[in-house]
Design a binder for these strands. Sequence first.
RNA 1: GGACGGGUGGGUGAGUGGCUAAAACCAGCAGACUGUAAAUCUGCCGCUCCUUGCGGGCUACGGAGGUUCGAAUCCUCCCCCGUCCA
Length: 324
Amino acid sequence: MNPPNASPPLVAVLGPTAAGKSALGVFLSSQLGGDVVACDSTQLYRGFDIGTAKPTTMERSAIPHHLLDVLGAQDTATAGGYRQMALVVLADLRARGRLPVFTVGTGLYLRALLEGLADVPQRSEELRERLRLTAQAHGPRHLHGILSRLDGEAAHKISAADEQKLIRAIEVCLLAKVPLTKLQRSGRSPLQGWRALKIGLAPKREALHQRIHARTDAMLEKGWLEEVRALLDSGMPEDAKPFDFIGYRELRAVLHGRSQLEEARATIQQATRRYAKRQLTWFRREPNVHWIAGFGDDPPVQQAALQWLRQQGLQARGEEARRV
RNA sequence: GGACGGGUGGGUGAGUGGCUAAAACCAGCAGACUGUAAAUCUGCCGCUCCUUGCGGGCUACGGAGGUUCGAAUCCUCCCCCGUCCA
């Protein structure tokens, strides 16, 4: 029985960094005939491998991975850009009958994909530069004043100190010649034709911290510092976005002699802990997540995830063929 | 043994008689976030009580005494740390 749902399923594995999302993604893909699709703003960048915890070459040769290494250091990753690319991947997987298994560390990107974004103008670097300069000259509060005139409601929601969000809001109002709030109210365009099954990994905080520390040590042992040195030596501009990712900025300081490796190690671990916390805050609000307590590389957790997906109507690899 | 300097809330560290539960920063906790999101920003952050209020009580600036209406801030003794002289 069990009439197949109208839309084919898509799996999303979400959770804080170092929770084992990649491992679970690979496992589920292998069991269910899927491809892994990374949903992580940092893994998009080519060459930044160790510190962004990209899946190993072994994992990647066993299961096809998508949306890794698709941007150069000088490109700018954005939620909208990610959505565009992900839609192409989804179309491709659908055509080939593969199950998409997203491993998501960047909650905003998943939301952008699933729920869409309001129809607003893209970034304008020139306009941003101008706004940044006025902020420098008159302080960020000045931007807040500007936004109040353009879109009082948006200004009310954004802190006067939040230069980044103020700039984006003003940028949109100016380019669209319509208040941002109004554009957002006109709605998003959610993803059509897919049924999202979300699995959340929720290890204990204490255990997660230990993982984070150990993983940082392992990354350094694997030659993270050398990776950064090589990237720098290859002539990439140092103000390129990925050099500001956690770890890359600290190791850059080490290479410039501005700090010691041990100092950097501690800072990286701390920054990663805080990052994990922010991810958790975001994911807590994500609707319809099936939470599993534990790490994604833990067999019982993997079985629990697989079992839940089956309950949701997913067939194991092979069963699909038999059914048809 | 002697001479200085110093001991402040989880950490660093301001504060030299009342406006100080004690600046600031960090850490921690909670939260926000529709195109920079590994980003950006916000709140809380001694304990406790309630009629949750710019509310009450208690504890707190190494220890013990003292001066004072009032002390982290002044005095005495003691303990500890650092530097220097023996």
